[in-house]
Amino acid sequence: MVDNEVVPPENRIPYERYFEVSAVPEPGVPLHSYAYLRRLTSGVLETSPVWDAHTHVGRDRDGRELGVDGLLGDLDEYHVDGAVIFPFDDPDQGTDFRVPNDRVWAAYERAPDRLIPFMRLNPNGPWEREYQRCLDRGHRGIKLHPRAQDFLVDSPAARELFASAAADGLPVLVHTGYGMRAVSDDLAAIAEALPHLLLILGHSTFIDMPRAVAVLAPYPNVYFETSVVRAYDLFAVLDMIDPARVIYGSDLPYASSANSLHDLAVMANIAGVDTADYAGLFGGNLLRLLKLEVPGP
């Protein structure tokens, strides 16, 4: 046995450049398995609650669909305790998303201890009545998709919606990914005007990275959700943003829990995030944001 740690620095072999034994899969363990992800996350997946902030149930205009059984099956395979659920860009959305929001609620009722229902709204339509209906029923947050529903985040209707959410303590997850124009300045203005608004940036505003992290870093009420973010943008988030403001998401069913957990774990390691913060990244931050109890390890 050669102790690589006691040899002179100039003679030390930099094994970590080539591999980390702790991250090399065990025999018969593929990269997309829970057994491998458990090791990659320093055991956090095993010891801390893991919650996904971005999943869809129902069906989409593009033909994709996901039911509660399929969702729970994927979560179970990777020991994800639960997920925020909200509608797709549903062909039955009408002007107010009433039908898809009912589908989400029905899914929630099948697994209320594992699913957190958000409502999806269209600020271009009569959103106020649907907002109140879902709020009264118990939806815990809002999903907005400015591209799919064709509105600007700083439009008067959207601002009114953000103000209502802030007043009622409902977090709002806004799609800030593919197909969006640069939105970080508009979102910063909203976050400043509504300091009690809890704003979750779906896909971490990758459209105007790395500027977005600099623009939005000063606002403690803005959170970065990590689904389908390119590795270099995820690095920028993990490198520059307080890890307490970074929230794991997958975008199921488009991405799998496996790939989403893997990307966040690898880039957190590369960005040098303290492993003590991993429990927050993978679920604790979301639960805290939603004022849900965070069980101890």
Binding site: R230, L234, N259, I270
Partner: peptide, 9 residues
């Protein structure tokens, strides 16, 4: 995109 991320990492 996930494949891209694997290559980058």
């Amino acid at each position: 995109t996930m494949a891209e991320n694997l290559c980058v990492s």
